[in-house]
């Protein structure tokens, strides 16, 4: 039962969790992998394993990011992982360019970015987001809409610049 549940979570949430972890480190696969392994070994099964995975992945990614910063400068890491794109190469979105989207996401406030990523691609509820970022539901709702508005403005500016 637990194995099947973890397997389903791996299939359904793997990509979103990887994107979620990309905010803090350049090895998001490792962060997601460690989070899932922790879920396998967790003594008491969490009530909301999906929300638990997001929190665990965030902590793992932050730890990995700190370790990366200790090892090399940002420029060196970018040179080493030049193809570290956040989104896949399959262009399913004719409206938004994925590189522009990545750039716009990178310019968001870190807290706003994790709310947007977990809400849009992780499809988390506002209550789950409130637990994830340790604030009220209304605050999450307010910050989410502010971040979405900021993201839209950023993408429109980039589109206007390109045109």
């Amino acid at each position: 039962m637990r194995r099947q549940q973890i397997h389903d979570l791996l299939e359904s949430e793997g990509a979103a969790l990887r994107l979620f972890a990309t905010q803090w480190c350049h090895w998001p696969d490792d962060a997601v992998q460690e989070a899932f392994i922790d879920l396998v070994d967790v003594p008491v099964w969490p009530d909301n394993p999906r929300a638990w995975l997001y929190a665990a992945t965030r902590n793992k990614a932050k730890n990995l990011g700190r370790a990366e910063r200790r090892r090399a400068t940002r420029q060196q890491r970018v040179a080493e992982h030049a193809q570290d794109a956040w989104f896949s190469d399959s262009h399913r979105s004719p409206v938004i360019d994925q590189r522009e989207l990545q750039t716009a996401l990178e310019q968001l406030d870190p807290d706003e970015r994790q709310i947007v990523v977990a809400r849009v691609w992780g499809e988390m509820k506002l209550e789950e987001l409130a637990d994830l970022v340790s604030c009220s539901t209304s605050a999450v709702h307010r910050r989410y809409h502010a971040a979405i508005a900021k993201l839209r403005r950023q993408l429109e500016v980039e589109n206007a610049t390109d045109q």
Partner: peptide, 24 residues
């Protein structure tokens, strides 16, 4: 938001999946 969701995140690497499966 729907336009954003159409941008698919990169999938988890096969190595990470294999590691989780092995741990399971």
């Amino acid at each position: 938001e729907n336009d954003l969701k159409r941008s698919t995140p990169r999938p988890l690497s096969d190595d990470a999946r294999a590691a989780v499966e092995a741990r399971l």
